Computed example of a mutant assay.
Amino acid sequence: MAASETVTLVLGEDSPLPENSADVEDLVRLLRGHVAQLGARTAPTIPALLCVQQLCSESIPEGYMPSRVYLVRLAEATRELSAYVEHSGLDSITMVGRRRRPRSTVNVLCGTVFTIALLCLVFAASGPRT
């Protein structure tokens, strides 16, 4: 969700070009962070991921127009990767040929520990007192 907001901030029709290089650097940093998160949710050999990773590895070009062109290219590549991850339904631990166990939540774990402790207490209280 945050990736699409950042991409819209860069590519939206009503979005103006960043005024200074610091704004460009901030947007590039945000997009690179989104790429890292999306990359963790997909296979490392996906062409969209490889393309955007190559863009991320490049430095921001000097000059007004080259830096803005780079920013737009990075946003478009991020949008493509985001769409791929959204439509493929891949998750961060998806493995080919293996079934994925659902993750336990903290609440389930706490409830299980509480139940076991309560059963131990009931069992200990039901025994004869000496």
Results as ranks from 00 to 15, higher is better:
Met1Asn: 02
Met1Lys: 02
Ala2Arg: 04
Ala2Thr: 00
Ala2Pro: 01
Ala3Tyr: 03
Ser4Thr: 01
Glu5Trp: 01
Thr6Trp: 00
Val7Asn: 01
Thr8Ala: 04
Leu9Thr: 05
Val10Gly: 03
Val10Ala: 01
Leu11Pro: 01
Gly12Tyr: 00
Gly12Trp: 00
Glu13Val: 02
Asp14Gln: 02
Ser15Ile: 04
Pro16Val: 02
Leu17Ser: 06
Pro18Lys: 01
Glu19Val: 07
Glu19His: 12
Asn20Tyr: 03
Asp23Ala: 15
Asp23Leu: 06
Asp23Lys: 07
Val24Gly: 02
Glu25Thr: 15
Glu25Ile: 10
Leu31Ala: 14
Arg32Cys: 15
Arg32Leu: 13
Arg32Glu: 15
Gly33Val: 15
Gly33Ile: 09
His34Met: 06
His34Glu: 14
Ala36Asn: 10
Ala36Pro: 00
Ala36Glu: 12
Leu38Glu: 09
Ala40Lys: 05
Arg41Glu: 12
Pro44Asp: 08
Ile46Glu: 14
Pro47Phe: 06
Ala48Met: 08
Leu49Gln: 09
Leu50Asn: 08
Val52Cys: 03
Cys56Ser: 13
Ser57Asp: 13
Ser57Lys: 13
Glu58Ile: 01
Glu58Asp: 12
Ile60Arg: 03
Ile60Pro: 01
Pro61Lys: 04
Tyr64Lys: 04
Tyr64Asn: 12
Met65Trp: 00
Met65Glu: 06
Met65Arg: 05
Arg68Glu: 05
Leu71Glu: 04
Arg73Lys: 11
Arg73Gly: 00
Ala75Cys: 08
Ala75Pro: 00
Glu76Ala: 07
Glu76Leu: 09
Ala77Gln: 05
Ala77Pro: 00
Arg79Ala: 15
Leu81Tyr: 06
Ser82Gly: 14
Ser82Lys: 03
Ser82Leu: 11
Ser82Cys: 08
Ala83Gly: 02
Ala83Trp: 02
Tyr84Leu: 15
Tyr84Gln: 05
Val85His: 00
Glu86Gly: 04
Ser88Val: 14
Ser88Cys: 09
Leu90Gln: 11
Asp91Glu: 07
Asp91Arg: 09
Ser92Glu: 08
Ile93Ser: 06
Ile93Gly: 04
Thr94Phe: 01
Thr94His: 09
Met95Tyr: 08
Val96His: 10
Gly97Pro: 03
Gly97Glu: 01
Arg103Gln: 12
Arg103Lys: 06
Thr105Cys: 09
Val106Gly: 04
Val106Trp: 04
Asn107Tyr: 07
Val108Asn: 13
Leu109Asp: 15
Leu109Ile: 14
Cys110Arg: 13
Gly111Leu: 04
Thr112Leu: 10
Thr112Tyr: 10
Phe114Cys: 06
Thr115Pro: 00
Ala117Leu: 15
Leu119Tyr: 07
Leu119Val: 15
Leu119Thr: 09
Cys120Glu: 15
Cys120Asn: 13
Val122Leu: 15
Val122Tyr: 08
Val122Lys: 11
Val122Pro: 05
Val122Met: 15
Phe123Cys: 15
Ser126Val: 10
Gly127Ala: 14
Pro128Phe: 15
Pro128His: 14
Thr130Cys: 04
Thr130Lys: 05
